[in-house]
Design a binder for these strands. Structure first.
Length: 470
RNA sequence: GGUCCUAUCGUCUAGAGGCCUAGGACGUGGCCCUCUCAAGGCUAAAACCGGGGUUCGAAUCCCCGUAGGACCGCCA
């Protein structure tokens, strides 16, 4: 039997970190077993589902490269099917009409909570035989006994059926509910493995009972531990960004997020870095941990830096454009881009940082840091700049190698250390005291701009000498 | 309150009864490299929740505590 897994989000918000990991694990498992990964949108709650959410989820999955093989299927388009199946169960007496109104149930629930009793439906309509002409919901008659299953991650889990309430299967408005739709769909779509968050463990026995009532065999279940925030409560907006697309906007590479998410809850010995192919090859439910994990932004940042570092400048160039644009730089078409990126790759943890760090390359005029200017743009450096300028203009090409040679010969003549020249040049070029290596910066910037900045800085340094002279 | 799940450095984790003086990674401190900043290399501090068993031997198996979490909707 070929493996079939699914990701079944409800479109009531964006694709969040937890959902993305669930989708990832489903995809990895399916690919690992040469099976199919299906996307199904659980939009049975018509009031809360939105088109924007559907799009947001699709966008998130696409960005992460979580490509599904079938779907998206929409539960809202299958209402007739669910109603039909519910009708069959009603015929067989496995469902019963419940005339309690939502308001009544709500107040009974509250009363039960107050009295310290389980807030469970009390089954009062179970044996009711009259049929008043009132709205009713269809409830599932939970049979006596116990229900247990072997979870691929957590092991055997058992429940007393007496602790499971008679759940509503069809609302009084005729729409089906989650637990029922999931079962009908997973069965009819031939899912072999249901991999989902462990917040669904308590739903599982209900669903197994429903599979039986419907005459289906239940799939294999695997419940993934939750992802927690830094305070060990369920990850939420309080802990920072939880939307997958927010990470795109902050300058993360999709592969970095995927790698991070894969290692949150799953491991393969001591390995930290995985290509997608390796993930597929090595993934197994057996190596998924049982306990919940805290989302660690620092480690994600490290991975992102790793992938930025190991990407080629050419790959990064198109990804960088939106970040430059955001900072008011129209970089498109600038032939220096790959060279510029190369100088900053191992200095940036995000694409956004990379864009910010590259700003000095694009500015019309250098924006000097006052302290740096005062310290390094001195009369001595003005003189050095002038000498350097002559040599740089004479260089056959503006490569790092030649630049280094030019610097060295000047330094040797003057008996100076590189630091004496590099820092002033850095300030002249960038306005500050921090930048990539001086030769790479020079080369990436391009001769014309570099020479202009050096000349400007020389003039500025002289002027400041005049002021000081008076 | 009930049901269910979980428990190794601050965090992610390795660990399938002796290979454990508990390993790796992120982060943190130190050193090295060095034109600044990074990157890189080396290095340090840092954990088996507690108590009982089982066993010649337990981080690993069992039980009981304790602590955290999830769920208990005509939401999904």
């Amino acid at each position: 039997m070929t493996v079939r897994t699914r990701f079944a989000p409800s479109p009531t918000g964006y694709l969040h970190i937890g959902g993305a990991r669930t989708a990832l694990f489903n995809l990895l498992f399916a690919r690992r077993h040469k099976g199919k990964f299906v996307l199904r949108v659980e939009d049975t709650d018509v009031a809360r589902s939105t088109q924007e959410s559907i799009q947001a989820i699709l966008d998130g999955m696409e960005w992460l490269g979580l490509n599904w093989d079938e779907g998206p299927f929409f539960q809202s388009k299958r209402f007739d099917e669910y109603r039909k199946r519910a009708g069959e169960l009603l015929e067989k007496g496995l469902l019963y009409r419940c005339y309690c109104t939502p308001d009544e149930l709500e107040s009974r629930r509250e009363a039960a909570m107050k009295a310290g009793r389980p807030p469970m439906y009390d089954g009062r309509c179970r044996e009711r035989t009259d049929q008043p002409g009132l709205p009713f919901a269809l409830r599932f008659r939970v049979p006596p006994g116990a229900t247990s299953f072997k979870d691929e991650i957590k092991g055997v889990i058992s429940f007393e059926n007496s602790t499971i309430e008679d759940l509503v299967v069809l609302r009084s408005d005729g729409t089906p509910t989650y637990n029922f739709c999931v079962v009908v769909d997973d069965a009819e779509m031939c899912m072999t493995h249901v991999i989902r968050g462990d917040d669904h463990i308590n739903n599982t026995p209900k669903q197994i009972l429903l599979y039986r009532a419907l005459g289906y065999e239940a799939p294999v279940f695997a419940h993934l531990p939750m992802i927690l925030g830094s305070d060990k409560t369920r990850l939420s907006k309080r802990h920072g960004a939880t939307s997958v697309m927010a990470y795109k906007e902050m300058g993360y590479l999709p592969h970095a997020l995927v790698n991070y998410l894969a290692r949150l809850g799953w491991s393969h010995g001591d390995q930290e870095i995985f290509s997608i192919e390796e993930l597929i090859e090595k993934f197994s439910l057996e190596s998924v941990g049982k306990s919940s994990g805290v989302f660690n932004p620092e480690k994600l940042l490290w991975l992102n830096q790793h992938y930025i570092k190991s990407s080629s400048p050419e790959e990064l160039t198109p990804l960088m454009l939106p970040f430059w644009k955001e900072l008011g730089v129209d970089a498109s078409g600038d032939p220096r881009l790959p060279a510029i990126i190369k100088t900053l790759q191992e200095r940036a943890r995000t694409l956004k940082e990379l864009a910010e760090g590259s700003l000095f390359y694009f500015r019309e005029t250098v924006d000097y840091d006052p302290k740096a200017r005062e310290k390094f743009l001195t009369p001595e450096s003005a003189e050095l700049f002038e000498e350097l300028l002559k040599r740089l203009s004479a260089l056959p090409s503006f490569t790092e190698k030649e630049l280094e040679a030019a610097f060295n010969s000047l330094l040797e003549e003057r008996g100076l250390k590189l630091g004496k020249l590099a820092q002033p040049v850095r300030v002249a070029l960038t306005g500050g005291t921090v930048s990539p290596g001086i030769f790479e910066t020079l080369s990436a910037m391009g001769r014309d701009i570099a020479i202009k900045r050096l000349a400007d800085a020389a003039a500025l340094a002289k002027r400041s000498a005049d002021h000081q002279g008076k």
